[in-house]
């Protein structure tokens, strides 16, 4: 399968490089878990195009992105430090060590659909800020929120879409339909067969795109960004992809799907499709692909070294970040923890 359209060679090369980087990092993270470097990981194998394509469509200097726990490819596309991102999987700090206020990537969210409403609130905040100049010559800053086919069953997703559509909030609901909510397939999860179809009920435009086509995803997300920036309200994109790996490193897909099924899904590998176009349309040679792979492996190795070097956070941080204004009771608990752990 080719790509929906062919961007200039440089742009396609840049996308391919990112796809390769996150693919290698993802494969590496699974190995780290097997090696005992990290306790767990949620692989995004097969979803690279959906994540890189959409992540490249927003401007992290002004927009804000709300991930779940499987958006490593998005984080990379936004330029988030990968050691700080992976620290959540190292069990260093739940939300990750990156600064969400600076990176404009919200903390990693373990409640599926938990942050979809936050995106609506943030987006509506941009409307309120520009209440006098709606939406201004540069358009609205937009929120991009991720969730999956499984999370689309959550009531919060309905509430978020309804709120956003009523208020015309500049938010993009980006669904990665990867076929599986852990062990439950989409046909046991999504009535009507499509999340995108639901958008009509909210009077909101939606596009279902080939989530394994990085260019299709990028272009669709750019259209959604333009739509929201211009003040036309929210938009939904459903990227149809496939979770080639397990739900997490604790999962065993052999209990709910066959090897044949997984192999047939691999035919849609987003990297191979991108590679084919680069070779056939632009005559890109092995040298480029080998270099991209070598760079990606080297980067994964660097990230591994950074993750290994992450020590535990000092225990006082347990107490420090609960409030902006610490309570006397918590201060007393912190003092007692310090005293008793020093005597241990």
């Amino acid at each position: 399968m080719p790509l929906v359209s062919t961007p200039p060679e440089d742009e396609l090369k840049r996308l391919y490089t990112l796809l390769t980087t996150v693919r290698q990092l993802d494969l590496a993270a699974v190995r780290w878990q097997r090696q005992g470097v990290i306790p767990g990981y949620a692989p995004m194998l097969g979803q690279e195009a959906a994540q890189v394509g959409s992540g490249c469509a927003v401007d992290p200097s002004r927009d804000f992105v709300f991930p779940t726990y499987r958006e490593m490819g998005v984080a990379k596309a936004l330029g988030v430090d990968m050691v700080e991102y992976m620290s959540t999987h190292k069990a260093t700090w739940h939300g990750g060590l990156y600064n969400p206020a600076q990176t404009h990537l919200a903390p990693i969210q373990a409640v599926v659909a938990g942050s979809v409403l936050h995106a609506v609130g943030w987006a509506q905040g941009q409307v309120i800020k520009h209440a006098d100049t709606n939406p201004g010559p540069d358009g609205f800053n937009i929120a991009l929120t991720y969730f999956g086919d499984g999370a689309s069953s959550q009531g919060d997703v309905h509430e978020a879409m309804n709120f956003a559509a009523i208020m015309k909030s500049p938010v993009i609901f980006f669904v990665q339909n990867n076929g599986w909510a852990i062990s439950v397939p989409t046909d046991r999860q999504v009535a009507g067969g499509s999340v995108a179809a639901r958008a009509a009920g909210y009077g909101m435009p939606a596009e279902q795109v080939d989530g394994n086509d990085v260019v299709a995803v990028l272009e669709a997300t750019r259209r959604a960004v333009a739509h929201a920036r211009a003040g036309n309200g929210p938009m939904l994109i459903e990227a149809m992809t496939y979770r080639l790996g397990p739900h997490s490193t604790s999962d065993d897909p052999g209990r709910y799907r066959t090897l044949a099924e997984e192999q047939s899904a691999q035919n849609a590998d987003p990297l191979q499709r991108c590679e084919r176009v680069l070779r056939e349309r632009f005559g890109v040679t092995d040298h480029f692909f080998q270099a991209a792979l070598a760079d990606a492996e080297a980067e994964a190795e660097q990230v591994r070294a950074g993750v290994v070097a992450l020590g535990p956070r000092p225990g006082h941080e347990m107490f420090e970040f609960v409030f902006q204004e610490m309570t006397p009771a918590l201060a007393a608990q912190a003092a007692s923890w310090r005293e008793e752990s020093e005597h241990a």
Binding site: F64, L117, G121, Q124, Q126, A160, F163, I166
Partner: peptide, 18 residues
């Protein structure tokens, strides 16, 4: 707002972030 408490409180989070 629409009649949905989770929506009201979830939106509050995003507004606070903004």
């Amino acid at each position: 707002t629409p009649l949905a408490e989770s929506g009201i409180l979830g939106m509050s989070v995003g507004l606070a972030m903004a």
